[in-house]
Design a protein around this nucleic acid. Sequence first.
DNA 1: ACTCTTATTGAACAGGTGGTAAATAATGGA
DNA 2: TCCATTATTTACCACCTGTTCAATAAGAGT
Lengths: 208, 208
Amino acid sequence: MAAGTTRRRNATERASEIRDAAATIALTRGLAAISLRNLAAHCGVTAPLITHYEPNMEALVASTFASIAENEIAEVERYALAPAEPLAQIRALIEAIADPARDNVGEVWTDAWSLGRRNESLAEAARQSMDSWHALAIRIIRAGQDAGQFAPVNPERAALVLFALVDATSAYQLVNFRTRETRESLVRETLEDMLDISLTTDGEPAAR
Amino acid sequence: MAAGTTRRRNATERASEIRDAAATIALTRGLAAISLRNLAAHCGVTAPLITHYEPNMEALVASTFASIAENEIAEVERYALAPAEPLAQIRALIEAIADPARDNVGEVWTDAWSLGRRNESLAEAARQSMDSWHALAIRIIRAGQDAGQFAPVNPERAALVLFALVDATSAYQLVNFRTRETRESLVRETLEDMLDISLTTDGEPAAR
DNA sequence: ACTCTTATTGAACAGGTGGTAAATAATGGA
DNA sequence: TCCATTATTTACCACCTGTTCAATAAGAGT
């Protein structure tokens, strides 16, 4: 900051700057790195100012996670529901989830489970976002079954299995367990077997 | 500590006392709670003494995790391999894993994935123990297939799926997602479908 | 009884955490 | 132009983190 020049921002603008900083920190250094000082440094401001806007760090961690997670779900949902056919939808869903650009979000999820044990608001946010994920999967699976394209397994359980595999593999990734290809195909092939579908477009009648 | 009485212990004894303290702290307060001061307080000793025995906290976290994980695997393996029949073995395996007494270990695993991102020794230890788990599952699954009792699916993938479900549900537990019964049956029923077996002993010919 | 080794402590360091009270100063409105 | 509001800072607090250095004292060996 330039000497003597104490820039003053209106409250809502500053508040959203801080929330953005929290999200950036969470995605690059983990949920545990969200702290008064890190936020202050990131915004070029002193620590007590952060307190002024966010009097409770635990709550900020929780709301930051919620924002990141809900944001991701909204994006993925938009991408997955774009096609009309359930088979194309579930392919899009898997494709979106597997995108390496989402690795950081996976890290934040793992942080959330670990920290959620001692941060009830965070745990609550995690449960809520998990419900959103499952609702999306169930919706697609049901549609595929109604269209007679997916095997008639229990949709709730299939959705749960799908996301359990996704969640486990994203945790595995943090410690570099197996290769990305192995982790991805674990999800893909299990889902193919479970719903009796093919997630690749090989051998499909070309739609062009 | 009593006035003037500075108890002195031989090095190996003190070293193992510290390692035990680390394990206790990890299991009750998480891997992240392993710190010089927590260890010192737990052993009734000053912080620099801990440094004397464990000059590197990151390494201690990693070795503590490795010890807890390998210990658990050894226990579960002993229990699961006790019966002769593969079907009885996999039932024992699932039963052992589901035991609520192991909840703490599940928490430590989730900590390990989260912290492993920034502690390579810890990540390495996690990979190694995950390999041990998978080896155990593959062994039982292969035996069941050789005996014609399990469906002839890819054993590597089935083992991976099994532990991905176990790992995900133990992460879910930290944030109280769904009920224990739902989490358990997710693992159980998926495994039953995958291997075409029954994990309950209902309707079995009684072996007495 | 003496000496040598070394387990252990006390006291400090630099830096991190969340948080508070009061002073400062920029801004919007009258 | 002055005032009231409030965003922002400065200066603290207590407690946590890992780490270093030198002094202390317990125990083992002779």
